[in-house]
């Protein structure tokens, strides 16, 4: 039921977009502003055409997405593994949790100078930065989820003579899954923001962030706006995919 409702698009959601575009077009045509600052819409569409055809817009887009997903995969898997460790081992938690709680207070962008020093301003740095963004929410939620495994179900495992590995795979992990997925979902959103941030601050190589900065430097607002729209669209799609995956994996709660 919820699935079908989600699949259908509610067109009312497009109203603000249409209003915004109309206002944009009106301002652009009114002659009150410089068309370099508020470029007309047909220019933007034309630009999309030429960017795709000539300047490898798709290449930039692909570079950003690959970067995003690489960093996300790295950070989220470390977050899940670390979260399970901290969630299950009181010793690991006593040793590492305080440091982590300080570590997570350090704003993400404060890491950039250090990362750039260690990994350069190439691809490695950007992926490390994205991974860092994905790591924190995944770890926090995985710890939470692992701890929430009910003692009564753990007792059922003991009764069935589950070994440690079976306890982990058959009880702790499934019990933690809703929390883990919440963390992974947050990580996916954070990773995409961090991807653009990384491209913005470490501008070597292709990417949507690079495209935006180029647009600014060459005073081509069209290119910048196009980049922004793409960022929003990709973020929206990633969010949709994450939510669909979550619903699929947690079907047992609603099926």
């Amino acid at each position: 039921m919820t699935a079908t409702r989600q699949r259908r698009l509610d067109w009312r959601g497009l109203v603000p977009v249409v209003v915004l575009l109309a206002a944009w077009e009106a301002i652009s045509r009114s002659g009150l502003t410089d068309t370099r600052i508020v470029p007309p819409l047909e220019g933007l569409v034309g630009l999309l055409g030429t960017e795709v055809a000539e300047k490898s817009l798709l290449g930039n887009l692909a570079a950003s997405i690959v970067r995003d997903l690489s960093g996300f995969a790295l950070g989220a898997s470390l977050g899940v593994v670390g979260g399970i460790l901290l969630g299950l081992s009181p010793l690991a938690s006593a040793l590492l949790r305080p440091s982590f709680d300080v570590f997570r207070q350090i704003a993400l962008f404060a890491w950039i100078p250090l990362i750039a020093m260690w990994f350069g301003i190439g691809e490695a740095s950007k992926i490390v930065f994205v991974a860092l963004a994905a790591f924190t929410p995944t770890l926090i939620n995985t710890v939470e989820g692992t701890r929430s495994a009910s003692a009564t179900l753990v007792e059922v495992g003991a009764l069935l003579r589950y070994r440690r590995s079976q306890m982990l795979l058959a009880i702790y992990l499934p019990a933690a899954l809703p929390s883990i997925l919440t963390g992974v979902h947050l990580a996916l959103i954070q990773s995409w923001l961090a991807t653009i941030g990384a491209e913005y601050f470490m501008t070597a190589g292709p990417g949507i962030g690079t495209l935006i900065i180029e647009g600014r430097d060459r005073f081509q607002m069209g290119q910048t706006v196009l980049g922004m729209i793409l960022i929003g669209a990709v973020g929206f799609l990633l969010n949709r995919i994450a939510r669909a995956a979550e619903n699929r994996l947690l079907r047992w709660r609603t099926a």
Binding site: T152, L153, E155, V156, A158, L159, L160, R161, Y162, R163, Q166, A170, I171, P174, A175, L177, W252, R253
Partner: peptide, 30 residues
């Protein structure tokens, strides 16, 4: 605990993420 002694608790204590047949199967892991 031993598989030679089964215990049914006051509450069913089923694994909510498994369908009925796999809940029963879960008792046979070992």
């Amino acid at each position: 605990p031993s598989l030679q002694r089964g215990l049914v608790f006051q509450e069913p204590r089923l694994f909510p993420w498994l369908p009925v047949e796999r809940n029963v199967l879960a008792a046979l892991r070992n």
